[in-house]
Amino acid sequence: MQYVDRHAFDPDVSFDGGDMDCGSGLLLLIRRHMDPLRAGGLLEIRSTESSVEEDLPAWCRMTKNELVSCVRSDSEWRFLVCRGSLADRQQAADRPSTASDRRPAQTSAHSNSIATSALPPAPAPAIAPLSVMGIGSWPRPRWMLQAIHEHMEGRLSDQEFHEIGDDAVRLAVDSQLKAGVDVVTDGEQRRDSYASFVGGLLDGCQLIPITDLLPYVDDPVKFEAELRALDVPAGSVRHPAVFGPI
Results as ranks from 00 to 15, higher is better:
4 V>Y: 01
5 D>T: 13
8 A>D: 06
11 P>Q: 05
12 D>T: 02
23 G>C: 01
31 R>L: 14
31 R>Q: 15
35 D>T: 12
43 L>Y: 03
47 S>E: 00
58 A>E: 09
61 R>M: 09
71 V>K: 04
72 R>E: 12
76 E>K: 12
78 R>C: 01
78 R>D: 00
79 F>D: 01
79 F>W: 09
81 V>A: 03
83 R>L: 00
87 A>Y: 00
92 A>F: 07
93 A>P: 03
94 D>I: 10
100 S>P: 04
103 R>M: 15
106 Q>W: 13
107 T>G: 11
110 H>K: 11
110 H>T: 09
115 A>V: 05
123 P>I: 06
125 P>K: 10
126 A>T: 12
134 G>Q: 15
137 S>L: 06
139 P>I: 01
140 R>Y: 06
145 L>I: 08
148 I>E: 13
163 E>Y: 12
164 I>L: 15
164 I>V: 12
171 L>M: 14
171 L>E: 15
176 Q>V: 01
178 K>F: 05
180 G>W: 09
182 D>I: 00
189 Q>W: 08
192 D>L: 13
194 Y>E: 14
194 Y>K: 13
196 S>G: 15
198 V>G: 08
208 I>N: 15
222 K>N: 12
222 K>Q: 14
233 P>T: 10
234 A>H: 09
240 P>S: 01
241 A>D: 05
241 A>R: 15
